[in-house]
Nucleic acid binder design. Structure first.
Lengths: 205, 205, 205, 205
DNA sequence: GCGTAACCGAGACGGTACGTCCCGTCTTGAT
DNA sequence: ATCAAGACGGGACGTACCGTCTCGGTTACGC
């Protein structure tokens, strides 16, 4: 978000301070935990970080984009690409990792808050798409393509549908809170995704 | 939300004005269209409706609950309970109705905004659960139970999983905007829900 | 400045609070003494008065106009209209009162600050002209017209010149600080105003 | 103020750029005209002059001192020492020169602004006393002492009072704007200074 | 038909955070 | 050592809304 991969042309003037950058991100991380995204204020972050407000605004256009950067690393780090050798195991492992990361955690509340914030902050929406959705999705595609290679899924199946069927219901429960994100839910969901709802041939069940 | 079904004891004092009630809801509806839920302010609604702010606060505890009331009727009215005689048809009809109601519409943008708002407004969260999730979900349960009666779904199947598999991916795409809510998506999703991902033949289940 | 002489039409809505009004003026008076006009901030006045900033801005367009109101009363109260029976006595008494009020006092420093502020604040400039210059000047005119009636000054003399010759040099020394506002200066000035610079005898003109 | 008359020891390192010096003064002069002293900011001067802010602070301690330097030359150049051969002519010429320089001019507005600024900027106050009040006053003293030599004024008269009686009223009108700085005012003032207010018996003057 | 209680529009209230502006200083690489 | 550039910590600005309170006035019931 803020670090270009290539040092670029080394712009003129005093360079931005890494110390401030870090202090801001740490203060944000702490306050996110203490107050949640909703009650986060730029003013308090600045004060906590010992930094002028302008220094924050110089780097992040909104509190959403700042919170995202403080959130993204620790979330993404907890989403390993599982490799259990079969589709069911992979999907279940991925889903359970996600549930572990978000259920009843600060990370989870922040994730929900950020999804809410994405709806109102176009700058954040762009970063969200680029730095969150895209990499996460790329990883999820691997799960599906490996299953296709193993012949567990027909090559004609739409991988996007498959991914959305796994995480869509999970996000749905996280956001609507209508039902629990239990392990039972995870197993049940994965099985139904693979086998479908349709009552099997031995209809006599 | 605000009017009790039973007139109750008919309290003393000047009764609340229906004219104001309507003016507020109309102003809210208009401003929702002009600005979106995010930039909606009670102050502007009051001004537009020619009403004191207190008159609004007397009836709704927050802008979310007010916006919900302005939103709920027109959304729910567009979600008929389909009855096509088979599971696939019912699911597809329900999903397509939902997509028609939300894709590229003010209603859709308001729905997204309300889901965001639910995360930060406890009063709204309660109303949301009671007046939106519960009735909608009850209707969706009918779809599944009818399919069970018809023998299209095993009686042991979890209807909540089934419903979440249908609408979870749809809400996911609405909120994350990563992929389009196309008719093709709807058909593909319904088929996969019913038949599962698993490759072709009645694999060794 | 803020109180209309006639209660007018009694405008609608909650009336402005006299308690707040007074608290603001008192806080301003205190801070004027502690910090001086230059380092006066609306923010601190609001905090000291236990009042929102908007409540101040609703009443006074700038810190200058507010400071003026806090200053004017106590200054004007100290500028009595002297009546010693002769021009010399009257002018001297008026000048000495002025010097007593401003020399080495908070009032004096505030007066200087306000004259400075008048140069940069058009709203204040208007109030200054109306509520300060005009009444003070009207009083000073009386001094001169009484002397004319007594035959001490020719009826053709310009009273404005006379007043400016008395207070102009005084303000000049207050603002430029080049020389002291001593009693000796006052006596000397008054004498020279009355008798002129021209050397003694009806010189050979 | 900034250039020492003697080059001194020719200090080490890169010498200060004359080009920058001039660019800063020119930018200041222009912005003084465009915005007035009040709304002058160091930031904008630096940008306009194509110069770093530090380069300005290295030379002038405040915007007042900088503005003074941009102002002083063109003001002082317009204040010649008149020599008409008599007191009345000299005083009138000096006063009219002053009025010409300040009435309705950028120089006048800057003069007023600087007097205001002097009240809040101690560094400027010192420079103001040394580089403005002192030389101007020395020149004005000449006017009076020549009149004393000519016998037009008693040797015992206080020359400072005389000077203040001439310019005090003028500055007063410039700062308070209560009456015009007309030629009529100038003549009337000078006459009254010389002859006094008192209705003389030898009315035959 | 009078009192009283709850409502009404208007708008001021104390408060909080906003995002901007400018201050005067500091830190770069380049003269 | 100074230059242009521009980031730094700081602090006040004036604004926007929040949700509450206080006016004078309006209904409509219960006495």
């Amino acid at each position: 978000m803020s670090e270009p991969n290539i040092p670029a042309v080394r712009s003129r003037g005093r360079p931005r301070s890494d110390v401030s950058q870090l202090a801001i991100l740490n203060a944000t991380r702490d306050l996110l935990e203490e107050r949640g995204l909703v009650d986060l204020t730029i003013e308090e972050i600045a004060q906590r970080a010992g930094v002028g407000k302008a220094t924050i605004y110089r780097r992040w256009p909104s509190k959403g984009t700042l919170a995202f950067e403080a959130f993204a690393f620790q979330f993404l780090a907890r989403q390993p690409l599982p490799d259990t050798g079969n589709l069911r195991g992979d999907l279940l492992a991925a889903l359970l990792s996600w549930i572990r990361a978000v259920k009843g955690t600060v990370t989870g509340r922040t994730l929900v808050g950020l999804i809410a914030e994405v709806q109102r902050d176009p700058e954040l929406a762009q970063i969200w798409a680029e730095k969150f959705v895209k990499p996460v999705r790329a990883q999820q595609h691997l799960l599906i393509s490996r299953a296709v290679e193993r012949g567990e899924i027909a090559a004609t199946a739409d991988p996007d549908i498959a991914i959305d069927m796994l995480f869509g219901p999970a996000y749905h429960r996280l956001l609507q809170s209508h039902l629990a994100l239990s392990d039972r839910f995870a197993r049940n969901l994965v099985d139904t995704i693979i086998n479908g709802l349709a009552a099997g041939e031995p209809t006599v069940r």
